[in-house]
Write a protein that binds this DNA or RNA. Structure first.
Lengths: 182, 182
DNA sequence: GTCTATATCGAGATAGAC
DNA sequence: GTCTATCTCGATATAGAC
């Protein structure tokens, strides 16, 4: 049931998906849905919190590995990419309906968790600068913002003739570390 | 009036903004809005088409300059960035409510124009590969998708302590051509 | 656990007085 | 050109029968 709703959310976004469509997909009528859930919001909550728990675990695991910043970032990109793909419903919700969720107290944890993710990225980028691994003129916050957006979006286009997750990840990592210049 | 609505769309997205809020901001009642516009959709249409006309002009101008691919891409990034900032309402609409607009025949031009933008990016990337300026293993379509997303998003965060447009552009161009490695 | 029927609400939009 | 009043519609959610 949650998975069904998630499929629809992933396709059309959260707000654009009606409970009637979810019920249709489940082969029941909309009223019957409320035997399984108290609200559409609580479905969204379950999907979003499950996603963030898992992706935060990826980030913390990468940091805990004790490697250098380049290795930590690479591990983050590689592990979290697959998590993102598995949770593309959550990602679609964050992308399409961010302003909606961000405004609600119930979803305050979204901001908190994203702040932790930002701290990890900027921390590793800074560490790389200090070690002389990354360019000294790198603005860590700005770079993080550019990069996270890039990283979170590919899930969006996994429909027509799509790239595999690993293709996207490899292209991303090359771009990140080396740029496009020959 | 359009500018007022645009401000609200930029802040909260198109769907999340009600005509009553637009009227409030204008100091009139919602019914009175319809003396100025026949529908909320037509406001959205005006904002979106105005944006795309202008940004396409930037792209075509850069291509017409006759420079090499690196210069063309750099010019695109520099000129269109400022256009994006001026049209952040349109950008917020595309980001928050893409699925909504993409589904409507009235907004079919969105897909068409974005396809032209994609053709220009991939064309220049390919030309750079052919000239040996860019890495031979670059997937032009994949790279374009990664880059356009990055480029279109910074407008989103121009609120707290924000970066200037030029800061963002410079960081983006360095990342693009050289990566983050020292 | 699903049905029918309906309550409730918010949104976009309209009509006609002033 | 703005007001009041109201229509219409679609969406979430509820109540109670089966």
């Amino acid at each position: 049931m949650v998975r069904l709703a998630g499929e629809l959310f992933a396709q059309k976004g959260y707000r654009a998906t009606t409970v009637r469509e979810i019920a249709d997909a489940a082969g029941i009528l909309s009223g019957s849905l409320y035997h399984h859930f108290d609200s559409k919001e609580s479905i969204g909550d379950e999907i979003l919190s499950g996603f963030l728990d898992e992706v935060l675990a990826d980030y913390r695991g990468a940091v805990a590995s004790g490697d250098g910043p380049r290795e930590v970032l690479e591990q983050i990109v590689r592990t979290s990419s697959h998590t993102l793909v598995r949770h593309r419903a959550a990602l679609a919700m964050l992308q399409n309906d961010w302003s909606y969720f961000a405004a609600q107290p119930r979803f305050a944890y979204l901001r908190k968790d994203l702040r932790e993710i930002e701290r990890i990225w900027t921390g590793e980028l800074q560490r790389g600068k200090d070690l002389g691994l990354f360019r000294a003129d790198l603005d860590v916050k700005l770079t993080y913002r550019l990069l996270r957006e890039i990283l979170w979006i590919p899930v969006h286009w996994r429909q027509p003739g799509g790239f595999s997750t690993d293709q996207v990840v490899d292209a991303f990592l090359r771009l990140l570390f080396e740029g496009i210049t020959a």
